[in-house]
Every structure is written in C-alpha cells, then in structure tokens.
Design a protein around this nucleic acid. Structure first.
Lengths: 151, 151
DNA sequence: CTACGTGCAAAAAGTTTGCAATCGC
DNA sequence: GCGATTGCAAACTTTTTGCACGTAG
C-alpha cells in the first residue's frame, strides 16, 4: 500500500496549487515550496503512482516534454459546477506559443474516422490547438503580463 | 553552399526509398544501405539542412520521437527562383498502434477555432489519429505484417 | 521492526555539439 | 588549398533505475 509521505502530498498539492497542466520540473518547483529537499526522481515516481491511481493524467503534446494534469477535474480557467461524469475523459489542448502554457479544451470536434483511408480502424484522436491565449493576447497591449518562458 | 556528399544523397534517398515518415534511426538504417559508414550525427545534420531547405518536414506526434517526411513542395533540387514561400499546407497523421507506422492524411476536419475559449487566438491545429492501419488490420488473420516496435 | 519511499548518481533514449580528420569543389 | 562535411565522443534533455539510507505504519 502507498504511504502518506510529505513528498507525495507535496507532489499532489503542486497541482492544486497551480491548478494547471504542469511539466515534471514545474511540479518539482511547486513541491519544493513545501518540501525543499524533494528530488526530481521522487516527483517522477509519485507522478507514476498518481497516474496508476488515475488521479492525474499524462498530457503529451507534439514536440514537447510530457505534462500532467489532475484527472477529470474542472478546468483551471473555467467555472466548476457541471456534472461532467467521466465517461471517456478524452480532451484536447491549447498550447500558447507566447507563454508556453497549456490549456484544457472541453469540446471535441467529434469523431473524425473519415479522415483515415478506408481499411484503417480509427480508435482515438488527439487535437492540439496552437495560438495565443487570452492572457497573452490581453497583455500585448497592456505591456507585459504573466509570461514566463519565451525561449 | 552545400556540398554534394555521398552522405547527403544517402539521407535524401532514404526517403525516396522508404517513401514514408521516418525516424532518425530509420533514416540511418536506410542510408547505411548506400553509405555503410554514415553516422547518426550526420543523419541529424543532413536532416537539419533538408529541413532548412524545406525539402523535408518534421513530424512530431505526441509521446514519440520526431519523424521526418518529404515535403509536399514539388521542386526538389532545383533553384527556387524567388517568392515561393511555403504555404500553409498542414496535414495530419494516422499512427498505427500495431506496427508503429505513421501515415499521412490528406483531409482536414476544417478550422476548429470554436474549440478554444473566447479571447484565445487559434493559429493552427494538429490532429493525430490512432488505430490500426489497413496492412495490420489485413494481416491480423495471416499473421505476417511488418511490425517492429510493440513496446 | 520492516518494507516502502527517498535522494543521489548513473543509465537510457533522443538529439546536439566540439573537434580533428576528410573530402568536395 | 580552403573550408564545408564527416565520424566519434561527449554533452544535453527528459525520464527511468540501482542502491543505500530513512521513515511511515
């Protein structure tokens, strides 16, 4: 059985703290605010456990490191309250090219089996949107917003 | 200016040979049939050059290593003259979970700007389909196929 | 007390880079 | 000959793993 260590709590609360889609180093940074001596290995190990438990989900976008999000939880920038029971928790993502932040999308363009040639069995699909998020779009006139990684 | 080395030719012909979406190690394997002493570094370097030339395009799918495909642009080695900037030819991909092969899709579900919350500027989108390709679906009874990576 | 969890270091996988030798032009 | 290109090894990034110690239960 899993033990209730400070590190496990720190990793998990990193998500509630940030409420967003985080990379492993970002989780580490947040967790270190609670348990400064936590190591990246432990982050990865706890993430694996949380994944196996279904408490978080892995978010993989083309060309970037894996991120993780709290599973089946209301989105960070949306308001909770919808009784969205997890039937098939497949969602899609928006990647801001300005701040690097990944946002959850709740809608889905629907089945796109027609895109595949005949004879191909489509099991699932992933959609990634790229562009400028509302924060960055709004910040471009007001000056600097809350960008962090413009590499 | 770029020199016409055997390695460059080997890397480029790896694509015509395979005619598919290839990972760097796959390019290496094909290129080694022509120039056995070619190294992976050279493959990466030539791939970078070909990318810069617009002769090939990088294909990044969630959770896997980068692949490369011959670009849709017709002129291969000729001089482009002027003004031919790469248009917005985006396509999508089908990833076979059985053989690992990546297939190009020609159709596109259309603009999906509506998926993003208001205030978000959608610049582009990517769609990845997962499932069983026609070869693997057909091979499931005969047991042949060309599977390789079932990890 | 005992087994699971942790930190560190090293490894694995994919990609890039420094450097001396090579080879196109 | 000059300098771009190559092969090798080493660095780098992201993630995993081996091992000895620490700690929850």
């Amino acid at each position: 059985m899993q033990r209730l260590t400070r590190q496990r709590n720190a990793v998990f609360s990193a998500f509630s703290d940030a409420g967003r889609v985080l990379t492993a180093p970002q989780i580490l940074a947040h967790a270190r605010e609670i348990v400064p001596e936590i190591s990246l290995s432990t982050v990865y190990r706890q993430v694996s456990l949380l994944l196996a438990d279904g408490e978080i989900a892995k978010v993989e976008l083309p060309g970037e490191p894996a991120r993780y999000e709290v599973a089946c939880k209301p989105a960070a920038h949306g308001q909770p309250g919808h009784g969205d029971s997890h039937a098939d928790h497949h969602h899609h993502y928006f990647h801001c090219s300005s701040c690097g932040q990944v946002y959850l999308l709740h809608s889905c363009p629907g089945p796109m089996d027609d895109l595949a040639p005949k004879g191909f069995q489509v099991k699932s699909h992933e959609v990634t949107l790229h562009g400028i998020c509302a924060s960055c779009a709004g910040a471009e006139t007001t000056g600097k917003g809350r960008a962090g990684k413009s590499h």
